[in-house]
Design a protein around this nucleic acid. Structure first.
Length: 287
DNA sequence: ACTCTTGTTAAAAC
DNA sequence: GGTTTTAACAAGAG
């Protein structure tokens, strides 16, 4: 379940591996994964990757001397990028495993981008919800416009956040999952954020106090930054570009911890259903 | 064979 | 127009 910290982990690793590289070919193994675009290879061959940006959970590739061509990449739930260097080693953040270990391209490889130096970027996606989508500047701008501000942005406006919450009548968890409202949180980090802020996921957003709103904003910022620092969270499917797990799983306080004792108050972590999602919280210290 | 899993989007409802 | 709900997507785990 890649959320902002996982996507940022992948973005940073990819940036150090493929920026400046020239595309020689693109293999498409599953049309839906490239938005059924039959022209994607023709339009990418010869292009040089200039930058990889991110907004929310969406990565945006741009190309040298191309101001009207962008590649949008979304991992959705099971998407993975694996990078293999010239020698077929899978390389991530300071580690590598062999290509055979990763079996690339494999059963779930949906597309592969090859570069002039014989390195390759494999896009794996078991459930085929993720996508690589070529678009123009207008398409890129339209995609970016669908995201609210990110809590990890130092300019994130807590007062604005509180005022917007007052207009929402859904559980606070549902509001925090809405990417058009604030960008980056998914199921794991919403639960972790609300535990840190001591707010129950089922509390209605418009009933959250100003103080709690500030605590939520700070907690979401901190939890995502801390996770980025240890390479994200691997709960089920997430792997970095070298096939390695993220380490933030070791720091989860409530997500997946149902039945265990709350480390803050000793209560028992419960799992319920809220906003249509499996939701974890401590009934004794989250009010 | 059935239920459950999740991020996003489109469409409909409010 | 902004917000909210619902269905749809897809494949695997249990």
């Amino acid at each position: 379940m890649p959320e902002l910290p996982e996507v940022e982990t992948v973005r940073m690793q990819l940036k150090s591996k493929v920026v400046g590289k020239t595309i020689t070919s693109v293999e498409v193994f599953h049309a839906k994964s490239v938005n059924n675009d039959e022209t994607i290879e023709d339009r990418l061959v010869g292009k040089v990757i200039a930058e990889i940006d991110r907004i929310g959970k969406l990565m945006i590739f741009s190309f040298v001397n191309e101001d009207n061509l962008f590649l949008l990449a979304h991992l959705k739930m099971t998407g993975q990028f694996f990078y293999l260097d010239e020698g077929g080693e899978a390389v991530g953040g300071g580690h590598s495993v062999t290509a055979t270990d990763r079996d690339l391209p494999g059963r779930h490889t949906r597309a592969t981008i090859h570069f002039t130096d014989h390195s390759a970027l494999h896009f794996n996606d078991m459930r085929i919800f993720g996508y690589l989508k070529l678009t123009d500047k207008a398409g890129r701008d339209a995609a970016k416009a669908r995201f609210g501000p990110e809590p990890i942005n130092p300019k994130f406006d807590t007062e604005w956040f509180y005022q917007k919450l007052k207009k929402r009548k859904t559980p606070i968890k549902a509001a925090l999952l809405d990417q058009t409202f604030i960008a980056g949180l998914g199921n794991i980090y919403v639960d972790e954020t609300l535990w840190r802020a001591k707010v129950r996921p089922t509390r209605l957003a418009d009933k959250v106090t100003k103080k709690e709103a500030a605590a939520i904003a700070a907690a979401s910022r901190d939890v995502m930054n801390e996770s980025i620092n240890v390479g994200g969270t691997t709960f089920q499917h997430f792997k970095d570009t070298g096939g390695k797990n993220g380490n933030f799983k070791d720091y989860l306080k409530v997500f997946g911890q149902q039945g265990k004792k709350c480390e803050r108050c000793g209560g028992t972590i419960e799992k319920i259903r809220c906003a249509g999602r499996g939701t974890h919280y401590c009934p004794s210290c989250q009010k």
